[in-house]
Design a protein around this nucleic acid. Structure first.
Lengths: 204, 204
DNA sequence: TACTTGTCCTGTCATGTCGTCAGCTTACCG
DNA sequence: CGGTAAGCTGACGACATGACAGGACAAGTA
């Protein structure tokens, strides 16, 4: 449905859109600006995408494909003792850097999902589900061994913890206003994650 | 700088803008629609606000003023035993309903802050600070009594916990996709909050 | 090289929003 | 009831949107 040259322009438009999203408010991103930056015309943009939102969805789907690597940070991991602490640290680290690399598009996905747009909600679920799923499994297993609180819902706890991580990740610039040092962020997130999953304080 | 009639139209425009934000994507909110809904003309809108964003900032500031009531949910509260559990429950409950009542504007504030707009960041800090501040104090006090982990940063932990609550609150519709029941949400958030503040599982 | 073919790009146009100004309407007061 | 100032709006130039028809370009053929 598209030739070689066409694919290239299409991809260039997507790249320029991504840059645009990183540098100006979503509300102000215009087709004409994206096209100009890509060295082409608005008409070309409309040949490949229905509108800005449509193109953003493409970007989001691309990102959600890349997010599958996040699952590895949460599947088949131990949550006991010092190895458990390392699991928490690595998960926080991986998630924060993924967010830093894709902050612009993730912002828009979050907004779309919060506004009730099913297409964005679905993408968001896919990205987060890659972590919450395995994490909930881990909690469930700890629970069945009597090592975690029996009254909690693994899915709800996992979802909430991942929400915490993504929310902090998305507001990293603003986070300093809490009065916390930037270097404090990661270890304290790992602390809360470990605590939430296991119900116990980490042994570092 | 403004008469009685003027105040009324201005307020009506703000109200209509709020409704608009609740019913359509922020990106698609147009001055002309707000004006029409308020039974007036675009020119009138521009008499009171520089643009949509300017008006949104007004709404956000109004909301941040109302948010001061949130502070009470976190100041001078006990975090020990069953009373501590009630503190957590009430904080979760209050925050979730505040978010539900103001979800539209809070969404936009979050976006603006994430995009690096200082004006929105400031408002967001003010709203969240009303809770994170007292909460960090509580954690600090527990810490000095040896009742909480000495290695954590109260500010970072409090900020992260509040981020968790607000993030979940902002995506309440999407939250069911985790596979968790809606009724599970509040108790499990309270669990994580109590756990994060005290370092111990709640005694319910 | 010249020609053909199908893909790809863009000039142009109708439509609609933005943001401003001059001038009209309304409310209030002496 | 007339004057005055506050408040509102029609109208306008500028710009973005989205659609189409036709021009430009790469690649294959002779």
């Amino acid at each position: 449905m598209a030739g070689r040259r066409g694919q290239a322009t299409r991809q260039k438009l997507l790249t320029c859109l991504d840059e645009m999203l990183s540098s100006s408010p979503y509300r102000d991103v215009r087709v004409i600006d994206v096209a100009r930056r890509a060295g082409t015309s608005p008409a070309t943009f409309y040949q490949y995408f229905p509108d800005v939102e449509g193109a953003v969805l493409e970007l989001a789907e691309e990102m959600s494909r890349e997010s599958s690597s996040l699952s590895e940070l949460a599947t088949d991991r131990t949550w006991t003792g010092k190895a458990g602490w390392r699991t928490a640290e690595e998960l926080v680290d991986g998630l924060l850097s993924f967010w830093r690399e894709n902050d612009a598009i993730l912002r828009v996905v979050d907004l779309g999902a919060a506004e009730g747009d099913k297409r964005f909600s679905k993408i968001r679920s896919k990205v987060l589900g890659g972590i919450t799923g395995p994490l909930a499994d881990s909690i469930g297993k700890l629970q069945s061994k009597g090592k975690a609180d029996p009254d909690i819902s693994p899915a709800a706890v996992a979802g909430s913890l991942v929400s915490m991580l993504t929310s902090v990740a998305g507001q990293q610039k603003a986070a300093q206003s809490w009065g916390a040092k930037k270097s404090d962020l990661k270890p304290n997130l790992a602390y809360l994650l470990y605590l939430g999953v296991t119900g116990r304080r980490p042994s570092r």
